[in-house]
Amino acid sequence: MNYSWTNTESLLIHLIAGLAGTSKQTAVIIYLTLNTTRARVDLVDRLAKSGAASGELRDRITGLTGRIRKHQSLRNHYSHSIYSFDAETGATRTITMRIADRKNALKMGRSDDVDAEALTRIRQTIEALKLLNHEIWTLVLEEGYPV
């Protein structure tokens, strides 16, 4: 899933270049300067909404970025967890690497099973990212954005 995610997220470079009217090299610098997916997606949305794209193209781009956001939480869960493996049963669990400050305590280490249902969600996300990747490439090529 991480490979599919990273491969698809990197296509934002071409959208940034096209929407900002800049070179791919400059778009790479902008992309790398923004160190979160959220910041990169927000930039693409804002460029599309700023008048850099027609209404139809704007809606198409914001639809794509909305789909990226939809899958972001699952990707974040698996990318920002540590894993526990039961030696006897082979069961796998994720342990979230997040600390939540409460009034008088800390809450940390929420744990979830990596079961058949979780694997199905991961497979569905990979398939969705594959389709999203194809649609972004199609848009980039149709619009003549820098590649």
Results as ranks from 00 to 15, higher is better:
23 S>P: 14
120 T>G: 08
126 I>E: 07
98 R>I: 15
121 R>I: 14
33 T>E: 10
62 T>K: 04
99 I>P: 14
77 H>C: 08
125 T>H: 09
36 T>H: 00
25 Q>P: 11
135 E>S: 05
130 K>E: 12
37 T>A: 04
127 E>C: 05
31 Y>M: 00
38 R>I: 06
68 I>F: 03
91 A>G: 05
21 G>E: 10
146 P>R: 00
94 T>H: 02
16 I>M: 04
12 L>N: 10
28 V>S: 13
124 Q>E: 14
15 L>A: 01
10 S>K: 12
141 L>K: 10
35 N>S: 05
99 I>T: 15
101 D>K: 14
48 A>M: 09
71 H>N: 14
79 S>R: 14
48 A>D: 12
107 K>W: 15
105 A>G: 05
130 K>C: 09
19 L>F: 10
95 I>Q: 04
51 G>V: 11
31 Y>P: 11
135 E>Y: 00
123 R>F: 07
20 A>W: 00
76 N>V: 14
121 R>W: 09
131 L>Y: 05
95 I>Y: 11
28 V>W: 12
105 A>M: 07
136 I>S: 08
137 W>N: 12
124 Q>W: 04
111 S>D: 12
107 K>P: 14
139 L>R: 03
87 A>F: 00
137 W>Y: 12
41 V>K: 02
23 S>E: 13
120 T>E: 09
62 T>P: 05
43 L>G: 05
89 T>I: 05
43 L>I: 01
67 R>M: 02
62 T>I: 11
51 G>I: 11
58 R>F: 07
24 K>R: 11
103 K>G: 14
91 A>C: 04
41 V>L: 06
35 N>C: 02
118 A>F: 03
129 L>Y: 13
69 R>M: 06
84 S>K: 03
21 G>R: 03
101 D>Q: 15
136 I>F: 11
9 E>Q: 10
32 L>R: 13
45 D>I: 00
105 A>R: 05
13 I>C: 09
127 E>W: 08
81 S>M: 04
54 S>L: 02
84 S>A: 04
53 A>R: 03
42 D>Q: 01
94 T>L: 01
87 A>E: 11
111 S>L: 06
87 A>W: 01
122 I>G: 03
50 S>P: 12
117 E>L: 13
71 H>L: 11
93 R>D: 06
73 S>V: 15
83 Y>H: 06
49 K>L: 08
34 L>R: 01
98 R>P: 13
34 L>W: 05
31 Y>C: 02
134 H>F: 13
135 E>M: 05
74 L>S: 15
13 I>H: 09
123 R>A: 11
129 L>M: 14
56 E>R: 00
65 T>W: 00
58 R>I: 07
135 E>V: 03
122 I>V: 15
41 V>T: 05
40 R>E: 08
11 L>Q: 13
140 V>F: 12
96 T>W: 05
17 A>Q: 08
66 G>W: 01
88 E>G: 02
96 T>P: 04
112 D>Y: 01
136 I>P: 06
48 A>I: 08
110 R>C: 08
